Amino acid sequence: MFRPDRLIQLRKNKGLTQEDLGKKINSTKGTISNYENGHSTPPSEALVLIANALNTSTDYLLGRTNEAHPDLSDTSKEQAEFEEFINDPEHGIFFKDYLKAPAERREEMRLIFKVLQEKEKGRKPEDRQGE
């Protein structure tokens, strides 16, 4: 069960206002207030974003563990970074479109991506992209 008290504690420990946290997860102060007051429970997507923003686990926010800041392995950190990236609306659109595309279109998208990767292989950090 979602633990509003833990959300409040972690948010305050990070020095974030409800508005700050709302912005970090593409939400509003009112939504965060509702979570903290127990008027609503964050959906799973929002729960993951909150956990990432507060450097904790969804298990801690759900009361499944009492460890607020688990020692994340490199693999877990990479997974958390990937989830944060994929949950960003700007990036997520591409992947959702990719998953909905027919197999032939997905293969075309992979080939285009490979061409772009090859083009960028020799690029130095100071070079402009595409040169």
Rank of each mutant, 00 (worst) to 15 (best):
V115N: 06
R105V: 06
T56W: 05
T41E: 03
Y98V: 12
D71F: 13
D74L: 14
P70C: 10
N55F: 00
A103Y: 15
E107K: 13
E78F: 08
L111A: 06
E83Q: 12
A46E: 04
L54W: 04
D71A: 09
K29M: 07
S40Q: 08
K29P: 00
S27P: 02
N52H: 10
L116A: 09
T28Y: 00
E81D: 10
S76G: 10
N55R: 04
A103N: 07
N55E: 13
A46R: 08
A53Y: 00
L72S: 12
L61H: 03
I112K: 06
A53R: 05
E90H: 11
K114M: 05
L99G: 04
R106A: 08
Y98M: 09
E83M: 13
A101F: 15
V115F: 03
L72R: 15
A103D: 07
L47F: 09
E104I: 01
A46S: 11
R110P: 01
Q79L: 12
S44F: 04
I112D: 04
Q117R: 14
F82S: 04
K77M: 12
G92K: 04
D88L: 00
Y60S: 05
V115C: 03
E104C: 07
A53L: 08
L99A: 12
G38R: 06
P70N: 07
P70R: 10
K100T: 13
M109K: 06
L47S: 02
I50T: 02
N37T: 15
P70I: 03
F113R: 06
H39N: 13
I50K: 02
E83V: 02
A103R: 08
E45K: 13
N87Q: 11
S27E: 01
N66H: 10
K119W: 09
S33T: 03
S33W: 05
P43Q: 10
R105I: 00
D71C: 05
E84Y: 11
Y60N: 01
L99R: 12
P102H: 10
E81R: 12
E90T: 15
L62Y: 09
Y98S: 00
R106F: 00
T28C: 04
G38M: 03
E118L: 11
E36F: 07
E104H: 04
R64W: 10
A80G: 11
E81A: 13
T56L: 06
E78D: 09
Y98G: 00
Y60R: 00
D59R: 06
V48I: 02
L61E: 03
D74I: 03
N34R: 11
S33N: 05
G92F: 14
N87T: 15
T31W: 07
E83G: 09
T41Y: 02
E108Y: 01
L99H: 02
K119R: 09
R64H: 14
F113Q: 05
R106Q: 07
E107A: 06
L62K: 10
R64C: 09
G38T: 04
V115T: 14
E84I: 05
A101L: 12
F95N: 11
D97M: 14
S33I: 07
D71E: 11
Q117K: 15
E90I: 12
L49A: 08
F113T: 15
P43R: 11
L61Q: 02
L54D: 01
S57M: 02
F82C: 04
L54K: 02
F95V: 15
Y60C: 03
K77H: 13
E67A: 04
S40H: 05
R106P: 07
H39M: 07
L111Q: 08
H91V: 07
H69G: 13
R64S: 13
N87S: 11
K119I: 02
K96D: 13
S44R: 05
